[in-house]
Design a protein around this nucleic acid. Structure first.
Lengths: 157, 157
DNA sequence: TAGACGTAGA
DNA sequence: TCTACGTCTA
């Protein structure tokens, strides 16, 4: 199997097929599918432009899984994951900025879906192929703070 | 290689040899050497008595590595690892209690040593064999709070 | 539900 | 130095 070179790439990762299953986030890093061990959005700069390379949708945020080929992904930040901290507006930076740039650039984003096993406590991850960001907008979250939303549709050959 | 059955055992783990090297804490869990993914002291109840099964010495606390066959291990708790929180006396509970019980019980404790690679940021782990708790005491830590100390010596055949 | 000698990347 | 859709056990 392909071993992560540390270099960021857009599109498919050699040696990883759609449907491949992983047990831990660190495995996604090792094979080069998705580098952050906790962060949901991976990105890098290509030709001076920050673009998203992959996202993990594992239920941490209020994503909307329309069907097997389209979903709405929630941006990061704003203390959404920290109920004890003060909620804030999400900012157009880091992963959020990268996902926004990926829309006009029409660059592919690797999708990894996290899911709970029947035991109800173990989580696994499946590589679900390439998607495009087709829409992005801001909306009011449950705490009356701004949250970014990104619609991604599967790339159909 | 042996796969973790979830069951706690005292002494050697089948399939793991002294000197075996691991890249991640989760690997120690998978092979059954040491179950907590962050905690330094693993323990379980055997015949109604809580005993330590393994410890990881990776530099997080102020341990004292006398030589390759003996070291002083610092107990857990007291917010030692949380410089932003208020320091407290460590309590004789959980891992600390298990290590204390292991001394009169003379039961073996698996030792895993963590060390930084030459790159100065990556950490690996080596299984260093079986030790006995030969001494335990309390002392005043740098914040004038009580800290537990445990001296462990390698079991020599 | 919360604590724990975690990890990688910006 | 800090953030991040972690991961395990009690």
């Amino acid at each position: 199997k392909h071993i992560n070179t540390g270099k960021q790439i857009l599109g498919p990762v050699p040696g990883v097929e759609v449907g491949d299953e992983f047990h831990y986030r660190i495995e996604l890093n090792i094979v080069g599918l998705h580098h952050p061990t906790q962060g949901g959005i991976d990105y890098a700069t290509f030709g001076g432009k920050m673009l998203a390379t992959s996202i993990v949708a594992s239920g941490g945020y209020a994503d909307d899984l329309h069907n097997l080929h389209s979903l709405t992904y929630t941006g990061q930040g704003g203390n959404v994951m920290h109920p004890d901290k003060e909620p804030e507006d999400q900012k157009l930076e880091r992963g959020n900025l990268a996902l926004k740039n990926s829309m006009p650039a029409k660059t592919p984003v690797r999708m990894i879906r996290g899911f709970e096993l029947p035991d109800g406590r173990t989580k696994h991850y499946i590589y679900d192929g390439l998607y495009l960001v087709v829409k992005c907008w801001k909306e009011m979250g449950p705490h009356s703070k701004l949250v970014f939303k990104f619609q991604l549709d599967r790339i159909v050959d």
